[in-house]
Write a protein that binds this DNA or RNA. Structure first.
Lengths: 133, 133
DNA sequence: GTAAACCTTGCCAACGCTGGAAGGTCAACC
DNA sequence: GGTTGACCTTCCAGCGTTGGCAAGGTTTAC
């Protein structure tokens, strides 16, 4: 039994976020003391850590709802978990490829920019012309 | 001389976005017809395309303000442009590394998940335990 | 008894857009 | 002239995740 500050410190999820997760329905409403303070058990902290770890791995909060349901479901099929994880990997890789393309383009442009006091610069010229595509 | 719909089609920036960029001060207030319609010139479309290209390269809207100022400044030093571009590359690469780390972790976990009807799954176990770090 | 550290709720800000509602304007057609 | 439909206008509200601040109640420690 601990209040939200302790649960936050123990889980690595800020008190603000715990309340937020509760407000959007990712977490069930916490039990309250007579004076209205939320209180949490070690089990709750366990769930919070699960959420934190999933966030660190880039899962959207909505996805985490699904993961939590599977986590709690002792009869789950690991295929379901794997499918979610690989779907997320695919999404991450799309984003990776996109960022990588930006980096490549910018590096190429920057490599051809004198980077001195002269005004001409292929970076601006490219932006100007729309990349020539 | 064209109204916002034409300018949007010609630049690849939606009418909604053009108004938004104006509202946040990235673009100067457009001239208006007597009836209040915004109107744009080919030169304006040129600027819009510049913005679009910069967004495609992942520049934040705030950064684009700086780039636009340099673009318009005929006496700019290319070093200033290059610095902004490389700073942006560095930020992109930090994000890339972060995403790559997530992908690597998830791929490793997924590779050890049977992905069948059995419930045990190292993905959940990892989330459970906080990654063991 | 009082001060400090906690808790509560609620609202605002950020990012970059997207959608909708309610209304005015313009062009084309009958 | 009238009507329809496609355009334009403004404002409002939301997405997702987090931080910050305010005003007030509670608990803890001295």
């Amino acid at each position: 039994m601990m209040n939200i500050g302790k649960a936050a410190a123990a889980s690595g999820v800020s008190a603000k976020m715990i309340r937020y997760y509760e407000s959007i329905g990712l977490l069930p409403a916490a039990r309250r003391t007579d004076s209205g303070y939320r209180f949490y058990t070690d089990e709750d902290v366990h769930v919070l850590r699960f959420i934190r770890r999933a966030r660190d791995l880039g899962f959207a909060v909505a996805d985490i709802g699904g993961l939590l349901a599977l986590w709690r479901d002792q009869g789950r099929a690991s295929a379901d978990v794997k499918r979610i994880a690989l779907g997320h990997v695919a999404a991450l890789e799309r984003k990776l490829a996109e960022l990588q393309g930006m980096v490549d383009t910018l590096r190429t442009l920057a490599a051809h920019c004198h980077g001195d006091a002269r005004p001409d610069c292929p970076i601006l010229t490219d932006l100007d012309a729309g990349g020539g595509r």
